[in-house]
């Protein structure tokens, strides 16, 4: 279970929130000028990156505000929370070296359960 920092209420358990999918998708104002293909893309298609992903959350049990978050999908870890209307902040994240790769730690997946010789110990943060 995540701890989610609502920009208004502070740190709360994930159980209080509802996920709203990809963020920063602006509803087109010129829909009537768009081709079927472009409109269909906007309605039906979403990004699904392995890495930093901006997504929307709704504090359903709390202040009932929608807000945005940055999450590293490669490690399932929140990086930032920010109000609607703001640009995503700059963040650092543990990312895979290649799109198909694994982040060096955090996914729990096979490739990164055990350290390689030469990898340094300690904590990641």
């Amino acid at each position: 279970m995540f701890v989610i920092t609502c920009p208004y209420c502070g740190e709360r358990d994930q159980a209080e929130f509802v996920s709203g999918g990809q963020a920063h998708r602006t509803r087109p104002l010129n829909a009537h000028e768009m081709s079927d293909a472009d409109w269909g893309d906007w309605v039906f298609m979403r990004d699904n990156p392995k890495g930093i992903f901006a997504e929307r959350w709704f504090h359903s049990a709390g202040c009932r505000r929608w807000f945005n978050a940055l999450r590293n999908t490669a490690t399932d870890q929140f990086l930032a929370f920010y109000p609607m209307g703001e640009a995503p902040p700059a963040v650092e994240a543990v990312l895979p070296a290649t799109p198909a790769g694994e982040a060096p730690i955090g996914s729990g997946n096979d490739a990164v359960k055990v350290m390689r010789p030469g990898e340094s110990e300690g904590t990641t943060t």
């Binding site: 490690t75 955090g106 996914s107 990164v112 055990v114 350290m115 990898e119």
Partner: peptide
């Protein structure tokens, strides 16, 4: 420790 996704060292 492993459940927490920490990395083990041989």
């Amino acid at each position: 420790f492993a459940q927490s996704r920490g990395k083990l060292r041989w």
